[in-house]
């Protein structure tokens, strides 16, 4: 693997790690593990932990995929490995 490809790959892995941490925090964190604590806070008529489990985590997932697609396209260009 030449140095450019391996730099591209480690940049990719860095991005994936960041996104997976957020992915974990909004679903397994806010939706399950910390849900009882968050339920003491209310978002409109929603207890916050319940909201994350049944609504919020899904919105975050969409944002994560869109951010991923955007950030990867930039990485592709930066390392000049994008499709012509």
């Amino acid at each position: 693997m030449d140095s450019n490809s391996s730099a591209y790959w480690s940049a990719t892995l860095g991005l994936l790690t960041k996104i997976l941490i957020v992915w974990f925090l909004v679903s397994f964190g806010a939706g399950i593990l910390f849900a009882p604590v968050l339920n003491t806070i209310h978002l409109g008529g929603y207890p916050l932990g319940f909201w994350f489990a049944q609504q919020g985590s899904i919105y975050c997932f969409i944002a994560l995929i869109l951010y991923y697609a955007h950030a990867m396209n930039q990485l592709d260009r930066k390392f000049d490995v994008h499709e012509e």
Binding site: L16, G49, Q54, S57, I58, F61
Partner: peptide, 20 residues
């Protein structure tokens, strides 16, 4: 509330699918 496991499980998988 526990039904949230289907909601999170069946959508969160798309993050994995899209990235990995």
């Amino acid at each position: 509330y526990g039904g949230g496991l289907f909601l999170m499980g069946w959508t969160g998988g798309y993050v994995l699918l899209a990235m990995l």
